[in-house]
Each structure stands twice: as C-alpha cells, then as structure tokens.
Simulated scan of single mutants.
Amino acid sequence: MPEKVNGIVADAIRRVRTSSGVPLAFAGVVTGPTTLRLQHFVGQHVGALSGLSVDVGHGLGGKVVALNRLLAVDDYLRTPQITHRYNTLIEREGLRAVMAAPVIVDRSPVAVIYGAMHTPTPIGGRMLDALASEARAVEQEIVAARARMEHAAEGENEMRDRMTAAFARLRDLAGTVDDARIAEELEAITRVLIAGEEPAEEPTVELTGREQDVLSLAALGYPNARIAETLGITVHTVKGYMKDAMRKLGASSRLEAVVTARRSGLLP
C-alpha cells in the first residue's frame, strides 16, 4: 500500500500545480509516527528539499501533521506561526509563500501536499481551495485503492481455500479407490494443485500423506473432530499427525504449520 499511496500523491501534485497556478507543488508521505519524508516535486526547484525528513511539529508540514489541518504562510522565512528548523533549505530553494494540506485516512495523516511560490505574498482563497480539494481527492483515492486491494485479497483467499478443499478431497479419494491407475492419476492431480506457483522456500522436510491430509483440512479451519470424521480416523490419531507435522515444520501452532507448508510448496 505505501507504493500505491506514493503514486496517488505524485499524481495529485501535478494537478495542484495546474489548478492553483503555483510554480512548485510537492508532497511528503508520513513514514512513521514522527516523520514526514518529502519525495515528490513538480515545478521549479533545485532539489534542496528532496528526501528531507520533516519532524512532526516543526516547519509548516510538521505542524500540519501535528494539527491535522491546512495551513498557509505568506513568508515562510519570517512567519512566527512555525518553527524555522528548515529555513536554510527553504531559502536555498528560494521559497517564500507556502501552503500545505494534510491527507487524512482513518483520522490519521498519511501525507502532506504543498504549494509554494518564490515571492512573499498572501495566498488567496482560490489556491487554498484547490489544495484542499486535491487533498480530499487523494484521501478518497487511497480509501478506494485499499478497498480494491482488500477485495482482491479476499478473492485470492477464497480461491486458495477452494484449492485446498479440492486437494484434501482428492487425496482422500485416492486412498479409497482400488484401481491403481486411477489412484496414481488422482495423486498426479494433487501434485498439480501444489505446483501452480514456485514455493517461497525450498522444501526442507517431507510430510507423509496423512500429515498432508490433516494439514490441508486444518488449513480450511476444520477442528480435530471434523478432521477425524472426514478422514475416518480417531481424534487422537489426528493430534498425532498434527504434532508430527508441526515438529517437522518447526511450527509452534497449527496456523504456523499451515503457513510454513504452503511456503514450502507442500500445500496449495
């Protein structure tokens, strides 16, 4: 999501420069509870501010983050409204009148968008409205992008659960058929299900078929009793297979065992 926020903010400052008419528009993304990092610039600048980490509460942007509201100064170098920790860089950049608006998502600032001029002059309402409008647009874009990512993740999780369920059913079926050729074909299909992607980690352990069966059902959220009923074994036996699988995978919980098995390409 941070990369997405950076992209949205970078697009916004291009619009700010056009809509407000300022010679320089720039932006910073909040990278922690006390830091705003300036990294996007459009317009006339010499790079003095590029990469600057602004402390919350200091300078114009730091104060905007602290107060969560739009601020403007007619002459950055002389205004009593802010601290002047960054005056040397501002002067090197030749900036005087500056406005800044926070981008707020879930009541927390995630970025600050600036508009700046090279002369000390009052910033008019039209410029402030343009900046505020873009900040609100960025907020909406970030929220929408996050919703799309969450929806996509839900779809991926649902598909993975379906694959895991199919894997478990095929393995169970393979153990019940008498025809060796059909059993081999079913086993081959299960191998296809766990070979769709390169494992994130090289397999360092080998699980038995029953250990894979138990883990695949645990991955679907089945409790031990349901796993036992599905596989036709006792709960005590299920616990034994799970304990052995966790030991082999170096896992301290069922969830960790499932995650490690998936990363190693042992489960879909």
Score class of each variant (00 low, 15 high):
residue 55 D to A: 14
residue 98 V to A: 10
residue 73 V to Y: 07
residue 60 L to M: 04
residue 110 V to M: 02
residue 48 A to S: 15
residue 122 P to D: 02
residue 89 L to Y: 05
residue 122 P to C: 00
residue 46 V to T: 14
residue 62 G to I: 13
residue 100 A to L: 07
residue 68 N to E: 11
residue 111 A to P: 03
residue 78 R to S: 15
residue 78 R to L: 13
residue 95 L to A: 05
residue 107 R to F: 04
residue 108 S to M: 10
residue 119 T to E: 15
residue 58 H to N: 12
residue 100 A to D: 06
residue 89 L to M: 12
residue 93 E to W: 03
residue 53 S to R: 14
residue 82 I to V: 11
residue 81 Q to D: 14
residue 64 V to A: 04
residue 94 G to K: 13
residue 108 S to W: 04
residue 44 Q to D: 15
residue 59 G to T: 05
residue 98 V to Q: 09
residue 92 R to K: 13
residue 52 L to F: 01
residue 126 R to M: 11
residue 112 V to P: 04
residue 45 H to D: 07
residue 75 D to A: 11
residue 101 A to H: 02
residue 127 M to A: 08
residue 69 R to W: 01
residue 120 P to G: 06
residue 64 V to D: 09
residue 96 R to W: 07
residue 80 P to I: 05
residue 53 S to Y: 06
residue 112 V to C: 09
residue 49 L to R: 05
residue 56 V to D: 00
residue 88 T to G: 05
residue 126 R to W: 02
residue 88 T to I: 08
residue 98 V to L: 08
residue 121 T to S: 10
residue 44 Q to P: 00
residue 73 V to R: 12
residue 119 T to R: 13
residue 61 G to A: 14
residue 70 L to G: 02
residue 61 G to L: 05
residue 63 K to F: 05
residue 47 G to M: 05
residue 85 R to M: 01
residue 97 A to D: 11
residue 91 E to N: 11
residue 69 R to E: 15
residue 75 D to N: 15
residue 111 A to L: 07
residue 62 G to M: 12
residue 48 A to H: 05
residue 47 G to C: 05
residue 106 D to P: 00
residue 76 Y to M: 12
residue 123 I to Q: 06
residue 111 A to R: 09
residue 86 Y to G: 01
residue 95 L to Y: 01
residue 47 G to K: 10
residue 64 V to S: 04
residue 94 G to L: 11
residue 93 E to R: 06
residue 97 A to S: 15
residue 59 G to I: 07
residue 48 A to L: 01
residue 88 T to K: 08
residue 56 V to K: 07
residue 116 A to S: 14
residue 92 R to P: 03
residue 117 M to L: 12
residue 81 Q to P: 04
residue 60 L to H: 06
residue 74 D to A: 13
residue 105 V to S: 02
residue 50 S to E: 15
residue 101 A to C: 01
residue 64 V to Y: 01
residue 102 P to I: 10
residue 48 A to G: 15
residue 96 R to E: 13
residue 116 A to T: 12
residue 74 D to Y: 03
residue 48 A to Q: 06
residue 96 R to T: 07
residue 97 A to I: 09
